[in-house]
Nucleic acid binder design. Sequence first.
DNA 1: CCCTTTTTGAGATTTAGTCTCAATCTAAAC
DNA 2: GTTTAGATTGAGACTAAATCTCAAAAAGGG
Lengths: 142, 142
Amino acid sequence: MRKEAEIFEEYLKTKKLNLTKERKAILNQVFATNGHLEADEIFLRLKKDKKDVSRATVYRTLGLLVDSGLVRKVYLGEDHIHYEHTHGHTHHDHLVCIKCGKVIEFSDKKIEKLQALVCQESGFKELSHTVQIFGYCKDCKE
Amino acid sequence: MRKEAEIFEEYLKTKKLNLTKERKAILNQVFATNGHLEADEIFLRLKKDKKDVSRATVYRTLGLLVDSGLVRKVYLGEDHIHYEHTHGHTHHDHLVCIKCGKVIEFSDKKIEKLQALVCQESGFKELSHTVQIFGYCKDCKE
DNA sequence: CCCTTTTTGAGATTTAGTCTCAATCTAAAC
DNA sequence: GTTTAGATTGAGACTAAATCTCAAAAAGGG
């Protein structure tokens, strides 16, 4: 499996863009985290690591990462978007506990297949999808 | 089937709140629209109808409607939330065309069943869910 | 009518995200 | 190594969604 940085660089080349040290730092930060994180978290972690990058660049780079297919946006019921990398592991979706905030990942091939079927029936070309199930987790449902 | 206003009023009573004319106007506006709409649209439509209600009240009431289960939030890939009523028709989810912005509703009982199964396996008590499939619609996929 | 609680609106505030623009960097061309 | 055009960045202004504050108004129960 190729490294993310390589894939990203390749993608950037097709747009005549370069893999700068800022973009690399953001990429590393996203791939260093398992699961979802928000734009501002990336900004703050980079600041802590003394790899300062402006907020504007964080958002701009996240946009590029999403376009490249390495990262996706996920909506977890909050008023801002989360990001998570998609490369190097199978697709998953989320159970979100509305009490404790815990996010549980799940993946189900059968659901994916049925979704593909729905798209086919509508003549729709799927690029991505997200499923969120909101409710109470095991510990909170008493 | 009971009317929405009745259900809402009942819900409000359990919280010792009243169904005021402002809340009723917002409820009517939401149920007058098929499909999704955004908070500001409700605010503007009410203004046009000379049933002025402040933005604060629109947001507050939408929160109550969501809590009551009559309305749900949907994320359609934009930077703000959409709302749609859930009462009086079967559950559906969305195909979102990332080119023309069209939103196609679909519903699939088999997918729902599998989702319920996933929840059961995790000991998760589902309250709601949303599925979004992003891609190109029939007319945009060429 | 009185009192308490609920409700509202106007506008301030917060927060996520985008935009602007001048300064800097890069890479290729000479 | 210079030049030059285009890419890139950061700081902070800006925008837009959503929330909060607080005083005034309305409602409900005695």
